[in-house]
């Protein structure tokens, strides 16, 4: 097979990452996940399978959860991105993170950022999901430790906490 030298290109893109608007230069072929991890050191977004199956790389882009390993950084130009670092903080966990902690919904933690990003997207769109709807929504997020039961319970509890007005850093007491 002959390989043809193709000049890569650099593009200047404008993105709003976790509320902060910034410009950056990327190659045409830079993946969104590489851009977030390497340009911004937002290493909470993980690379698992790198084939858009495992969901470890899920971030929020323009209000929807997406797999950042299967999107080019240039495609994000002009858009708003939220990563796990923008969801809560060590001092003030998001109710979804609080519920994951309370329900023991993680063991090794590798899938957790993607799980939380996906679960937050679900409860934004469907504030009181049934167990079947939670399991269905998490179809694109693989966990090899927990067996999923505690994750499903955590998402359900977080949805209830959010519905009763819980906010980041404030324990729901539920």
């Amino acid at each position: 097979m002959t390989t043809k030298a193709v000049e890569g290109e650099r593009h200047t893109i404008q993105v709003t990452v976790n509320g902060k608007r910034q410009a950056a230069e990327v190659d045409s072929h830079t993946l969104l996940v590489e851009f977030l991890r390497e340009s911004f050191r937002l290493t909470g977004t993980h690379v698992g399978c790198d084939t858009s199956q495992c969901g470890a790389c899920v971030v929020e882009f323009e209000g929807n959860s997406v797999k950042s390993c299967t999107m080019l950084a240039v495609q994000a130009d002009g858009g708003r991105i939220t990563t796990i670092e923008g969801v809560g903080s060590r001092e003030a966990l998001h109710p979804m993170q609080e519920a994951f902690t309370e329900c023991h919904a993680l063991q090794c933690g590798y899938c957790t950022p993607g799980m939380v990003m996906s679960a937050c997207d679900l409860v934004r769109k469907n504030p009181s999901p049934s167990e079947a709807e939670i399991r269905d929504w998490l179809d694109g997020n693989l966990c090899r430790c927990t067996g999923y039961n505690n994750i499903v319970r955590a998402v359900s509890e977080a949805a209830q906490a959010l519905a009763s007005g819980a906010q980041a850093g404030v324990k729901s007491g539920a």
């Binding site: 390989t3 193709v6 000049e7 890569g8 290109e9 593009h11 190659d27 045409s28 072929h29 993946l31 080019l72 240039v74 130009d77």
Partner: peptide, 9 residues
């Protein structure tokens, strides 16, 4: 991934 040009139409 091999480099390529990118055009936004």
């Amino acid at each position: 991934m091999k480099p390529f040009q990118y055009r936004l139409a």
